[in-house]
């Protein structure tokens, strides 16, 4: 399309591979968040919008002052959940880059240590580290959840 004449190695070059993996994750999981936000949006009371119309609020004002505060709960829950899930993602990254070019996440490292290097002990150690990270995230998550009760 005339953007560049060179070949681009999307999954082999150092900064680009990480960006592409991130873009892929966004592409793959935006519909899920989409669904959750849509479901929450449909459950917002329409009376408020009618009242806002009476008061002469413009479309963007309605979104900013009515929809967004209502969505805040589900947005924050989604933020945390997706953060945790993506942190734990293995197969997408493994299949895209095999953990090369600066995309070796903790989960890919478990596989590399245990099966590529055949050092199951080291792999298990990394798995324990992941589990500890997850535990700290989930403590945060549950503390937050009991305030929000969104999900």
């Amino acid at each position: 399309m005339g953007v560049t004449e060179d070949t681009i190695n999307f999954f082999g070059d150092r900064p680009l591979a990480l960006i592409m993996v991130t873009v892929f994750e966004i592409w793959r999981y935006f519909p899920l968040s989409f669904l959750f936000i849509l479901a929450r949006m449909q459950s917002i009371d329409t009376d408020m919008y009618e009242a806002a119309d009476m008061d002469g609020a413009s479309p963007f004002q309605k979104f900013w002052y009515l929809s967004l505060p209502q969505l805040l709960g589900i947005l924050s829950v989604l933020f945390l959940l997706r953060f945790i899930w993506t942190f734990n993602k293995f197969d997408d990254i493994f299949l895209l880059t095999g953990g090369n070019a600066g995309t070796r996440t903790l989960t890919v490292n478990v596989y590399e240590q245990a099966f590529a290097v055949s050092n199951i002990g080291a792999g298990a150690a990394v798995a324990v580290v992941i589990f500890l990270c997850l535990l700290s995230f989930s403590v945060f998550f549950f503390k937050f959840m009991s305030q929000e009760e969104g999900l």
Partner: peptide, 21 residues
């Protein structure tokens, strides 16, 4: 009830090694 969610969040790769062995 909460531990269900917690297990939901445990990555499979953590379980995969013990399962494999």
């Amino acid at each position: 009830s909460r531990s269900i969610l917690l297990i939901y969040m445990v990555p499979v790769i953590v379980l995969a090694l013990p399962i494999y062995i």
